[in-house]
Design a binder for these strands. Structure first.
Lengths: 386, 386
DNA sequence: CCGGACCATGAAGGCGCTTTCAGAAAGCGC
DNA sequence: GCGCTTTCTGAAAGCGCCTTCATGGTCCGG
C-alpha cells in the first residue's frame, strides 16, 4: 500500500526551520547519510537460517544444530556455521523458533495497575532483575486500574504464549470479573502456562505472594495505640480492591484488640491526589478530629501529608499519620512517614520465581506470605495534650 | 489430545502444613479443586484455528478471514466461525500470525536504565498509555546501567521482531559501544524496524525526543544567579552519560553568561545514594562552601537534600539546592526542590508516536526538542547574608 | 577383512497461521 | 438462455525454524 513510485525522487535539501509545536516542543528533521540501497523502500528481508546454512555450505538442519548445540556437530562445521551467522548478522526469528519447538518462548508477562506508581515500580524492578538473570524478556502492561483491560491483557499474553503471566496488585471484588478472569486463566494453565500473583486471594488457585495486609495493619494499629492514640480515622481506597478491604479490616481488628472503635473512614482514589482529597475531606468535616490517621497506602499518605500541611495541621504534633508499603519516597518527606514496610523488590523477585519453579503436585498452589514490619518514623508521636 | 479419563479419581484431602521459609516469609500450599483431566500432566494443546474451522464446518481459510475481517465472508458463515471460536475458547497464536503475515507483530520494545527510578517510571508510564491506545504490547527491559546489557536486549528484541525499539535514557560516550549499538540497530532498521530514543544524540540517526538539557541547565543557572548566588557547586553523575555532560556544560554556560566560573564539581552515582554521597563529599571538603548546589538529576538532588539535612545545613537559608527533571517526589520533600521540569509522561507518549509514525522521507530522522522549564520552589532562595 | 554399533548429516515433515490462486456460485445485460 | 463479471470459498503454498527419520560413513571387535 505504498505510494506509486515516482520517476524522479525529489528530496528537498532543506534543513527544516524549527517549527514550533505546542507545549514548548520543537520538531525538526535532520538529514542523515544513508546507504544507497536503503533509500529504496524495500525493507531488506531478515537474514534467515537458510542463508546461513548456504553460506556455510551445510544443510539447514546442521546449521540449526550448530547454533543451538542440541546435538553434536563436527567441530569444523560448527565453526563454519558460527562464522557464517556472524558474517551475515543472523538473528533467529523468535516466532519461528517458538512455533517450531514446543519449548515455548522466553517471555513472561507482567500486568500491574500502573508502572508509574512507586509501589508497582518497585515490584516491577524486582521482576526485571530476576528475569534478566534467567534471560527472559518481560512484557509489561499497565491496566490503569481498569478491570476489563486486565483481562484483555491476559488474553494478549496468552496469544503471545508467554511462559508465565504475573498479576501484580490487588484484584477486584467483583463476581463477574472474577469469573471472566478465571475463564481466561484456566485454559492457559491447562495448556501449561504458569500464573502467579501478588496480593490477590479471592478465587485464584494460583501461586501467590501475599503480603500480610491484615496482620500488618493490625500490628500498626497496636503500635499506634501504644503511642497513646485513641481516636483514629482511616483514609481508605476503592472498596472493591481486596488490599483495601484487608488493610482496613486488619486495622479495625488491631484497634478492637485494645477495645477501641475506629472512627471515620474516608474513601479516596488510590493515588496521591486521592489521599490529598480524602484528608481534606476529613479535616472539613466538623467532627472532633482524630489524633491519628492511617492511610491505606503510602502513596495516599503522601498526599494526605501535603493536605495536612496546607491546612496548617502539624504532623505529628497535632495529628499523627501513618501509611503502608514503605515506598522510597516516605523516607524523604518530612516528617518521614511511619508505615508498614514491605520488601517490594524482593516480592517481585519472588513472584517470578514462584511462577517459574517446577509446579508442585498437581493442583497445589503455593502461598508465600510476606510479613510487613511496622516502622515508626517521625510522622507519628504521642497524641496532642498528653 | 485430552488425557484418558480415569475410572476413579483420588485427590488426597490434605491441607499442607505451613512450612516456614527464611526472611520472615512463609510458604504454604493450599489445595485447589481441579478438573479431572488436568491432573494428567498432558498440557492440553492449544485450540487451533483448524479446530475452529472444523467445528464451524468451513475451511481454514474462511475461518481466518472471518476472524480477521480481511475479506468479506458470508454473514452466516462468519457467525458460525465466531461462535465456534468462542465456544472453543480459541486464541490465535501470535507467533504463527507474525510468521505468516508480513504485517509484523504488535509489540514494541522499550529499554531503559531502571524502571524503579521515577524518571524512567514516568516516561515508561507514558509509553504504556500510548501503547495501550494502539493495542500494542510492550516489552520492557532494564539495563541497570550496564551498556552491554543494553545491546543484548536490542538483540533479543530484534529476535522478537518487535515493531519498534525505544531506547530511553542517556547513552554512553564510548566509541566501541556506539559502534556495537549501531551495528545492532542498522540491520534492524533496514529490515523495516523502527527505532526512537529519548535523550541520545551521538551517532544515532534515529528519531529522537531530546530534552534540552543544555539550554535547561543554562536557564536554571541564570535563574539562580538572579537570586543572588555567585558561588556554585555541581553534583554530577557518571561523565560517560551524555545527559550528564550536557547538563553540566549548560550550567557552565549559564554561569559564564553572567561572568561566573563554576566552582567544585563532585561526581557521584546516578542514584539517590550517589547524590547523598556527593553532597557529603562536598561538605567534607574544607573549601569555602558554595551558596548554591545543582544536582544534575532530581534523584541525586533528593539524596543531597537528605545529606544536607543530616549535616545540619539548612536549605535554602544556608545553601540553595536545585535539581533537574521534576520527578514527582521533589514536590513532596521539604523544602520542595527547584528544578527544571520535563514532561516525562508526555515524552514517553511522544517517543512511541515518533517511532510508529510513518517514516518521513527516507533517511530523515526527526528530532523533537523538549524545552524544560525552570520551576523555582522552596529549596532555592537568596544566598546567606544578603 | 566383514558385520554391527555408533554418529554426524541431510531430507522432509510439521508448528499455526495468512494469503495467493483458481474454481464454484450467483447476478447481470443482451 | 448464453457469456460475462462479480463474489465468495477452499486448496495449497509458504513464513523460518526444529526435529524426527533415514542414510552414508566411521570405528570396533571378531
Amino acid at each position: 500500500m505504498t505510494a506509486p513510485a515516482h520517476g524522479q525522487e525529489v528530496v528537498p535539501k532543506f534543513r527544516g526551520p524549527a517549527t514550533t509545536a505546542p507545549l514548548g516542543v520543537e520538531l525538526s528533521e535532520r538529514e542523515t547519510p544513508l546507504h544507497p540501497d536503503t533509500r529504496r523502500r524495500a525493507p531488506a528481508a531478515h537474514v534467515t537460517l537458510d542463508a546461513v546454512a548456504r553460506e556455510a555450505g551445510v544443510s539447514l538442519a546442521t546449521a540449526s544444530r550448530a547454533l543451538n548445540g542440541t546435538t553434536r556437530v563436527r567441530d569444523d562445521l560448527r565453526g563454519r556455521v558460527r562464522a557464517a551467522a556472524d558474517l551475515l548478522g543472523y538473528i533467529p526469528n523468535a516466532h519461528a523458533q517458538a512455533l517450531a519447538s514446543a519449548e515455548g518462548n522466553r517471555t513472561v508477562g507482567v500486568i500491574c495497575h500502573d508502572v508509574g506508581d512507586p509501589y508497582f515500580a518497585g515490584i516491577a524492578s524486582g521482576v526485571m532483575r530476576a528475569a534478566a538473570e534467567q534471560d527472559l524478556l518481560v512484557m509489561l502492561a499497565s491496566t490503569f486500574r481498569e478491570p476489563s483491560r486486565e483481562i484483555a491483557y491476559v488474553s494478549m499474553l496468552r496469544a503471545q504464549r508467554a511462559r508465565a503471566i504475573l498479576l501484580i496488585g490487588s484484584g477486584f471484588q467483583d463476581r463477574a470479573w472474577e469469573r471472566a478472569m478465571d475463564a481466561e486463566l484456566e485454559p492457559y494453565v491447562r495448556a501449561g502456562g504458569r500464573v502467579a500473583v501478588v496480593s490477590r486471594h479471592r478465587s485464584m488457585r494460583v501461586d501467590t505472594v501475599q503480603p500480610e495486609n491484615r496482620a500488618g495493619a493490625a500490628a500498626l494499629a497496636a503500635s499506634l495505640v501504644e503511642l497513646g492514640h485513641r481516636d483514629f480515622a482511616v483514609l481508605s481506597g476503592p472498596p472493591e480492591l481486596t488490599t483495601v478491604a484487608d488493610r482496613l479490616a486488619g486495622f479495625r481488628e488491631g484497634l478492637a484488640a485494645a477495645g477501641i472503635t475506629l472512627g471515620r473512614v474516608v474513601r479516596g482514589a488510590f493515588t496521591r491526589e486521592g489521599g490529598h482529597a480524602a484528608a481534606r475531606q476529613l479535616l472539613a468535616a466538623g467532627d472532633a478530629r482524630p489524633t491519628c490517621v492511617f492511610a491505606v497506602t503510602d502513596v495516599m499518605a503522601v498526599g494526605a501529608l501535603a493536605a495536612l500541611r496546607e491546612a496548617g495541621v502539624r504532623v505529628p504534633e497535632d495529628m499523627s499519620l501513618a501509611g503502608f508499603d514503605d515506598i522510597p519516597v516516605v523516607r524523604e518527606v518530612s516528617p518521614p512517614l511511619t508505615t508498614v514496610a514491605l520488601p517490594l523488590t524482593e516480592m517481585g523477585e519472588q513472584v517470578i520465581a514462584l511462577a517459574l519453579r517446577t509446579p508442585s503436585r498437581a493442583g497445589r498452589s503455593r502461598v508465600l506470605r510476606i510479613e510487613g514490619s511496622v516502622v515508626l518514623r517521625g510522622s507519628t508521636g504521642a497524641p496532642p495534650g498528653s
